[in-house]
């Protein structure tokens, strides 16, 4: 996907991010921090999670357990670390599914014009009858619930989103002179879309990927919370909320901690997406035009 043009633009991009507004920097730093926390949990957590210790259940925060313990005596800091990793993995794979199966039809739609518009409108109706929850319920019933059912369910929603975003931004560029020139030079519609539109719209797709990452973290939480996502003995932020709900009125901390983690991750990703979106907002069309001139 990376061409010389993108390489040449890289340095100013980094500088623009560094000089960008506070929200963007905060979003990127916080996202990376949570990502790091998640990855650290692969090799190390303060306490092991596979051991139930009822003598230490529902403890308040202390020097030993910074955020206290849950109803099985497990350390909440360790749980949140593992849960963050699980949420990121589910959300990231769902984004990959969405890009792989959503971007190509979006490009094709831009190349085919009006006929594709009508097809897209019907596909949009169809997809809005299948929110992640409905798909997850279907998969969970047919094949059993788990991380995989969550990834596929969220991924299917992502496919629709990426197809729409790719389609509408590619349609804006389709009439640009350099695309017409490529067509005149003998490139097929599909080749022209792939070679000239895809690089030009990739920043838009990247921003959308960050948004869908946030959406994935939120959706994973909802799916695992109602029992059609990650299952025990696995851990996820949503599953923590499911397990903590029944004794919430006695001890609210196990409900507050994972919820705040989810909200911070989603906020960070959305801030990063919004900030980057502003950087590339100088209309897409101009981005394409610059490339022809260079």
């Amino acid at each position: 996907m990376s061409t010389e043009g993108v390489e040449a633009n890289r340095a100013p991009w980094v500088r623009r991010v560094a000089l960008g507004h506070v929200g963007l920097r905060l979003g990127i730093i916080l996202s990376l921090l949570f990502l790091l926390i998640g990855f650290v949990s692969i090799t190390w957590t303060p306490y092991p999670l596979d051991r139930i210790n009822l003598s230490e259940q529902l403890q308040n925060p202390s020097l030993l357990h910074w955020l206290g313990t849950d109803h099985l005596g497990r350390d909440l800091v360790s749980m949140v670390m593992k849960g963050t990793l699980a949420s990121f993995i589910v959300a990231a794979i769902a984004v990959v599914i969405g890009m792989l199966f959503g971007v190509p039809p979006g490009l094709a739609a831009a190349a085919w014009g009006r006929r594709a518009d009508r097809a897209a409108s019907h596909a949009g109706d169809f997809l809005s009858l299948f929110p992640a929850l409905v798909v997850a319920i279907l998969i969970a019933t047919a094949f059993g619930p788990g991380a995989l059912s969550a990834m596929i369910a969220i991924g299917i929603v992502n496919i629709g989103v990426f197809a729409r975003v790719t389609g509408s931004s590619a349609a804006m560029l389709w009439k640009a002179n350099y695309v017409a020139a490529a067509r005149l030079a003998g490139l097929s519609a599909w080749e022209a879309a792939k070679r000239h539109l895809l690089p030009a719209i990739s920043p838009v797709i990247l921003v959308q990927a960050l948004r869908q990452l946030a959406f994935g973290v939120l959706s994973e939480a909802a799916l695992s919370y109602v029992g059609v996502g990650i299952q025990p003995p696995g851990t996820s932020l949503g599953l923590m909320l499911r397990e903590a709900q029944s004794f919430m009125l006695v001890e609210p901390l196990p409900v507050l901690v994972p919820g705040i983690a989810i909200a911070l991750i989603a906020l960070a990703l959305n801030l990063a997406a919004e900030g980057l979106g502003k950087l590339i907002d100088t209309p897409l069309a101009r981005l394409g035009a610059d490339r022809v001139a260079g």
Binding site: L218, A221, Q245, I262, A266
Partner: peptide, 22 residues
């Protein structure tokens, strides 16, 4: 709106239960 978009809806419901009901 940015914060509201990041808060899981059902968790907001739990907070409402803790605050308004409990």
């Amino acid at each position: 709106t940015l914060i509201a978009a990041g808060v899981p809806g059902f968790w907001f419901g739990m907070l409402l239960v803790l605050l308004v009901s409990a």
